[in-house]
Amino acid sequence: MAKKAAAEHLVMPYLVSIPCNFSAGPYMGRLLREMKEHKKLWGNKCPSCGRIMFPPRAVCGQCHGVEAGDWVELSDKGTLFAFDVCYYPYIDPTTGQPKPVPWARGVITLDGGGALIHFIEPPDPEKLRRGMRVQAVWREEGRMGEMMDILYFQATEEDKK
């Protein structure tokens, strides 16, 4: 049977872009300002269940009935709770450019409470392990008041030994 010519499909690239003015408000706003100005992480504590919340929030998602106002300075050191090393191409949303593979991200439980997700360096599955001690590496110049003011987390000196 003669092969039919494949139908030509029309595909149109399309980009959606809308400028937004996002209001950080007092809770997120204080955290981001402290990161920018003092290289410090802050969370808040639910007065009902005592949970340390990072990122800081207006209300505890679990207890709901309380407005969480008690500020707590958090450590920028912690323990790698979970991580993954990824090998698929990744477009950096802040630059639109591809990042080199592999790359690693992990959940870090901060000393004294709170947890966050960030890049882990180096992205080497041989060197990363759950439970390892990690520390934030801050951007020294040009911090903007955003999570990328921390460049990545890496093993602490004590852990490297």
Binding site: N21, S23, G25, P26, Y27, M28, R57, A58
Partner: peptide
């Protein structure tokens, strides 16, 4: 409400 985060 430019001074408020939506959650508030």
């Amino acid at each position: 409400k430019r001074e408020e985060h939506l959650t508030e």
